[in-house]
């Protein structure tokens, strides 16, 4: 006989153990991504066929470099949150599910690091 009432599970953190943090971060990153994605797609359209020097100079512009880094970090953080929900919904053995979620999170961090390092290399002029 369990004496805990259902409200005990709901008050505070709930079964997910982190309350609404996941849900909230997904929304906050979504709002940030609206202007970032619109800026990025239309910029990419303009630079789609550009030669190396033009693209390098464009990314090296401080404002562009900052916005690209913001896009990389925000988009991959958002993607990783979304993939986690998909995996939690469809991957059944709990151990496998946990392994997939952790793998996705590790991969997202690696991609963020590669992306940010690439932009910094271009912006700080390590290569010509």
């Amino acid at each position: 006989m369990a004496y805990r009432t259902p409200v005990k599970r709901a008050v505070g953190l709930g079964s997910a153990k982190d309350g609404v943090h996941h849900w909230w971060m997904q929304r906050v990153t979504a709002i940030a991504l609206v202007p970032l994605v619109l800026w990025f797609t239309f910029s990419m359209a303009v630079y789609a066929g550009a030669d190396f020097e033009t693209v390098r100079a464009w990314i090296a512009t401080p404002m562009v470099a900052v916005l690209l880094i913001a896009l990389i970090v925000t988009a991959l953080f958002h993607a990783q949150l979304g993939l986690q929900v998909v995996l939690e919904d469809y991957v059944q053995p709990h151990g496998l599910q946990l392994a997939c979620v952790i793998a996705v999170k590790f991969l997202a961090v690696l991609l963020i690091l590669v992306g940010v390092l690439s932009v910094l290399r271009i912006a700080l002029g390590g290569q010509t």
């Binding site: 190396f52 693209v55 390098r56 990314i59 690209l68 990389i72 988009a75 991959l76 993607a79 991609l111 590669v114 992306g115 390092l117 690439s118 932009v119 290399r121 271009i122 290569q127």
Partner: peptide, 13 residues
Amino acid sequence: SLLLIYWLAAVAS
């Protein structure tokens, strides 16, 4: 997103 990261890494290289 893999494509975006690949493309940026290519520009950096």
